[in-house]
Design a protein around this nucleic acid. Structure first.
Lengths: 306, 306
DNA sequence: TGTAATTACGGGATACGTAAAGATG
DNA sequence: CATCTTTACGTATCCCGTAATTACA
C-alpha cells in the first residue's frame, strides 16, 4: 500500500539511530514510528532493525535494504525535482501557431533571443491562417489577432492591435486626402474580408465618439498582404494594423490619413489550453512575448503621428 | 505525502491509456484516480496528462516523468523482492555460539554440508563455554544444553540430551560393576560441576520411577573433558551425554552401567532472539540442525544397549 | 446519446497522538 | 531512575465510492 512512506521512515530511523530521534526529526510520535516500522517488517516478512533500550540498529538485511532505500529515495527526489524544476529551466518542444504576417514580422524577429534564453526549449513555429485545434494539433500557444471564443482556452493579451487608415503618397496625390470619415465613400477602399465580419462597414473612434461608414472599392481580399501591396501600388485606401504597416509609414511608403480617427483597437492574444499547471515553456514563451510587445509595442513609436 | 502511491497510480494510468481503464485495472473508482492525479499534479506543479473525452495522454513532461517512474517502481519492486526473498535463498553472516565439545563433535561435522547447501551464507561458528549476550555478541543462534530461561529468547529443541552412567572396563574389572543406584555410594564418582546444580545429587529414572543418590569421589571438575579423560583412565564412574560418549561406548573404551537406570533426559536447544520475522539464515540453520539431530540423533544408535 | 473526466458528498478505514506499560543499562 | 520501545485506545483525517455534472464525439 503505502510503500515509500514507510521506506522513507525506515531510512530516517536508520539515519537517526533510534526511533525517538527519528520521531523528533520527522515530527511524529514514537508510537507512530514503531507501528509503521512493524508494519513494514510485516510486509517484507523480515526484521529490519534490532531494537534495544539504547536504540535501534539495522540487521544485516536492514543494512542492505537501507542502501537500496537511500538510492531509491534519491531517484524519487531527483525525478520530482526535475519535473518541478521545469518552470525555472523550461524544457521540451514548444509548438506555436501564429498568423503568417505577424509571425514572420514580429515573432520570428525575437526567436533567436528566445532560444538563446531558453536553450533547452525546441521551438516549432508554425505560421498559418487557419483556426487551431489545440488537441489534434498538439499546439501549445496560438497567437491570434482578435477576440477568442473557446472557454477551454485561456487568452492572454500580448499587444494592442491598433489599426489606422492609410494610403500611398501616390494615391493621395492623385485622388486627394479624405478629410472626414464620410469622405471615404468617395474613395476606392481596399476591403479586407475576414470571417464573421461585415467587411464593408468601417468603424472609427474619433474625438466625437464612434462613427461608421459603408465603403466600397474595386478590390476585396481575405489576405492582408494583397491589400497591402495594392495600397502600396496606389490602388486605394486600406485599413492596416500598425504592427503590419509600421515600417511602411516610417518610410513614407504609406501615410496615415483621417487622423485622429482610427478603427477601434482590438488585441493580439496568446492563447493556450487552460490547465491547472502550465508547462514552463508555455509560460516562458508567453511571458517573453509580453516582455517584447506588452507595455508599448515597439512598432507603435514610428507609426505614432507627431 | 504519499509519494509513490500516486506515482504508481500515474504510471498505471499512462499504461492503461485512460483513467477509467486504470480504475478498472487498479480496482478503484475513476473518481479516486482523477482526484489523486490532480493531487499529484498539484504537488509537482505541472500538468502530467492532457485529458480528452477519448482518454488521457501524457504531456511531454508527463512522458519524461513516466520513464523515471517506471524505473523507480522497478527499483522498489526489486529491492523488496530481494529482501523478501532472503528466506528462500538465505544470505549474510550467521553467527553461532555452541559449547566446545558439542560444537567440535557434532556441529562442525555438518558445517560443510550446510555451507554447500546455502552458498551465500557466511558462517561464524564460535565455541565457548560462556553464557551468551545476544545483542552485545551479535549472536544469531546459541546452542545450549539444558533449559533456557530468558523470555526474550526463543528456544527450539534440536535433540535430546540423553545421559548415561559409565566407566572404563579397567575400573569395572578392578572395582566391580554396581548393580543398583545405591551401590554408587561405594564407588568413586567423578563429579561434573555445573552452575546452579547440586553436583553430588545424581538423579535417575528407572523402571520403578525416580531415584536419587548422593555420590562422592576424589575428582570434581566443571569441565566434561576432564571427567571423560579420567573415566577413560579408570579413575571412576561418570555421567556422560550420549552425544559425547557415543563412540567411546561403541569402541568399548567406556561401558554403560546400571542399565536401564539413566539420569533424566534434558534437551539440547537452538536459541535465537525472538522476533516477528526471523532472518532466513537463522531459520535455515535451525532447520538444518533439526534435520540432522532432530528425530533420532545418529549418536544414539551405537550407544543404545542391545 | 453515450463515454469519459470532474465535482460533491457521505461513510469508513486508517494513521496519528496521548498515555501507560515493559524493558534495559 | 532514566531512556527507549511497544501496546492500548480514542479521535481526526483522508481516502474511497456513489452519484450527479460537464464535456465531447
Amino acid at each position: 500500500m503505502d510503500q515509500i512512506s514507510d521506506i522513507s521512515l525506515f531510512a530516517q530511523v536508520v539515519a537517526s539511530g533510534n526511533l525517538s530521534a527519528a520521531a523528533r526529526d520527522l515530527g511524529l510520535s514514537t508510537a507512530a514510528i514503531s507501528k509503521r516500522l512493524i508494519r513494514l517488517e510485516e510486509r517484507l516478512g523480515i526484521q529490519l532493525l534490532t531494537r534495544t533500550t539504547r536504540g535501534a540498529s539495522p540487521t544485516e538485511e536492514g543494512s542492505a535494504f537501507y542502501e537500496r532505500c537511500v538510492h531509491i529515495l534519491g531517484d524519487i527526489e531527483e525525478a520530482e525535482a526535475e519535473i518541478s524544476g521545469c518552470e525555472l529551466n523550461p524544457t521540451g518542444t514548444l509548438k506555436v501557431i501564429a498568423p503568417i504576417a505577424f509571425g514572420r514580422r514580429h515573432i520570428a524577429l525575437h526567436v533567436p533571443e528566445f532560444l538563446a534564453r531558453y536553450p533547452k526549449i525546441h521551438l516549432d513555429l508554425r505560421l498559418s491562417a487557419q483556426s487551431v485545434d489545440f488537441v489534434s494539433n498538439q499546439c501549445d500557444v496560438w497567437i491570434r489577432i482578435g477576440e477568442p471564443e473557446d472557454s477551454r482556452l485561456v487568452a492572454r493579451k500580448i499587444a494592442p492591435n491598433r489599426r489606422i487608415v492609410c494610403a500611398s503618397p501616390l494615391y493621395l496625390e492623385r485622388h486627394g486626402e479624405p478629410q472626414t470619415v464620410q469622405d471615404l465613400k468617395h474613395h476606392n477602399c481596399l476591403i479586407i474580408d475576414r470571417p464573421n465580419t461585415r467587411a464593408e462597414q468601417w468603424h472609427f473612434i474619433g474625438p466625437n465618439g464612434p462613427e461608421t461608414v459603408r465603403v466600397s472599392g474595386n478590390l476585396r481580399s481575405n489576405d492582408g498582404e494583397v491589400i497591402q501591396r495594392s495600397a502600396l501600388a496606389g490602388i486605394g485606401i486600406a485599413v492596416k494594423s500598425t504592427w503590419d504597416a509600421g515600417t511602411l509609414l516610417q518610410d513614407d511608403m504609406l501615410r496615415q490619413i483621417l487622423h485622429p480617427y482610427e478603427p477601434p483597437t482590438s488585441n493580439i492574444y496568446a492563447i493556450s489550453l487552460q490547465s491547472r499547471h502550465r508547462a514552463g515553456r508555455v509560460s516562458a514563451f508567453i511571458d517573453f512575448l509580453l516582455e517584447k510587445f506588452g507595455s508599448a509595442p515597439y512598432w507603435e513609436s514610428p507609426a505614432k503621428p507627431g
